[in-house]
Design a protein around this nucleic acid. Structure first.
Lengths: 157, 157
DNA sequence: TCTATTATCTCGCTCAGCAAGATACTTGTT
DNA sequence: AACAAGTATCTTGCTGAGCGAGATAATAGA
């Protein structure tokens, strides 16, 4: 073990108070991922299935229909993987396949109400806690949080 | 609001300014995940391999040796999966297996310098951008960001 | 020493996801 | 109308990450 000041090779950027927050953000991302994974395993699902349900519910919230193809693209799956994914979700009763009336090649995916309720039961408390936390900050502090997160999104693309 | 239940329903049905930040945080977590995945695919690795390298480098930064068992536990793999993971990483030249001299049952995993450099070349710019962003905030704003992220970590466990 | 415990590895298997191609429907052209 | 080209999904066959069970090797305790 090195008896010197420790962080010469790993910590290229000067480790100021900023680096602590950078690591914190990464840790949060990992922890949120684990939280999803736990939800998946408890309900006999795979991480991809959860990602799919979230993508479907996001689209529904934005008022958009999601076709099988759309879903696969959003998750980075090819058509075969997408079919298998929707098969799994449908078999578990979380979604329904509905043939589009206008273009009968398309299959739109609808999320079952019970899957939505299941999701809320797991993610609801976490969201409530987040809202609670955020209510403790004033407008300038909220703007800082919003600005940092928005900036990181842009940087991560 | 006079009615507690009513307030919660409104909170869920009608997202306030807080919900925007909640969704933003989730989006950041997803985007950071995608950023990792891209790094993995560009270098012929799987998401788990990247998670492993990050875990190994985190431990190294904290001055801890990581054994195969430790690594598997950290990633939620069983022993067979861990062996396969280390095999992959070693085959790619990213890590070395080193038998512990004191307890010869143990195998400590050392990350190759070139893997560290590779990681920096991909994650460095993102980290630099984060540090840049954070330098634009004063102490109270930084405390808000730190507090929110710390609170979310605790909530996600 | 002999036994129990711990750490890693081996073997056989399951299943998510890929590549290629089949099938079904729509649209454009003649 | 009929036919070709394009688009959306599904089928088939395969690869490989990760699991369960158990083997192997080293240490610790009596």
């Amino acid at each position: 073990m090195p008896d010197q000041e420790g962080e010469e090779l790993v910590e290229r950027a000067e480790p100021g108070p900023e680096m602590e927050i950078v690591h914190l953000l990464r840790a949060v991302a990992v922890d949120l991922g684990r939280h999803s994974t736990r939800f998946a395993q408890r309900n006999g699902m795979h991480p991809t299935d959860v990602r799919a349900l979230i993508a479907l519910m996001d689209a529904a919230r934005a008022g958009e229909e999601t076709t099988a193809g759309h879903l696969g693209t959003a998750l980075g799956l090819n058509s075969a993987g997408t079919t298998a994914l929707v098969d799994r979700l449908e078999r578990a009763g979380h979604v329904r396949r509905v043939r589009d009336a206008r273009d009968r090649r398309k299959v739109t995916i609808e999320v079952d109400e019970r899957a939505i309720a299941l999701g809320w039961s797991h993610f609801g408390p976490l969201i409530d806690r987040a809202v609670d936390l955020l209510r403790g900050y004033d407008e300038r502090e909220l703007a800082a949080i919003r600005g940092f997160l928005t900036g990181m999104r842009k940087a991560a693309v």
